[in-house]
């Protein structure tokens, strides 16, 4: 089956991103396809490379990135939601006159159309959030 995943909450405060990760990993290990993981609302905070959790805790961001590396996953951060919350890649940072970017290189920033397309292209869209 072909899944699309939507993550609506940021890391650590809510379990949504952890659960989405576990679901995505399990689906991939079972041989299913994951068309895209789309991060929306505070979910865009899952894509900052500056996250520094305590050493004995999981690193939610790096864990997504590693899964993406292993399975060539498409991790997409919503641009509109990212701009509100200060998540930027080099292009976005420059375009908006900011002095830094913070996106993890395994994620990419794109528009909401990517979420709709994922819904169209996949057999199931699974939403993780509150």
């Amino acid at each position: 089956m072909k899944f699309a995943i939507q993550v609506n909450e940021g890391p650590y405060t809510h379990q949504a991103s952890d659960t989405a990760y576990q679901f995505t990993k399990a689906a991939l290990e079972k041989g299913h396809e994951v068309f895209r993981v789309f991060f929306y609302h505070d979910g865009v905070n899952n894509g900052t490379r500056l996250t520094t959790p305590p050493q004995d805790d999981r690193n939610v961001i790096n864990r997504w990135a590693a899964l993406a590396e292993q399975y060539n996953l498409d991790l997409v951060i919503c641009v509109a939601a990212a701009q509100r919350r200060g998540i930027a890649d080099a292009d976005e940072s420059k375009r908006n006159g900011k002095d830094a970017d913070n996106i993890h290189p395994r994620f990419r920033i794109s528009g909401l159309g990517q979420l709709i397309e994922a819904g169209i292209q996949s057999d199931r869209l699974v939403v993780f959030g509150d």
Binding site: N8, Y40, H41, A80, A81, R84, G111, L112, G113, L115, I116, E117, G119, I120
Partner: peptide, 28 residues
């Protein structure tokens, strides 16, 4: 496509950002 709106318009951003998805999605 069905959008389920469960939360009050203010207090959290969900309602506003849901509406943004609906508007962008309309082009599809």
């Amino acid at each position: 496509f069905c959008y389920i709106n469960r939360k009050a318009p203010y207090g959290t951003v969900y309602a506003l950002e849901s509406l943004e998805v609906v508007l962008i999605g309309a082009a599809f």
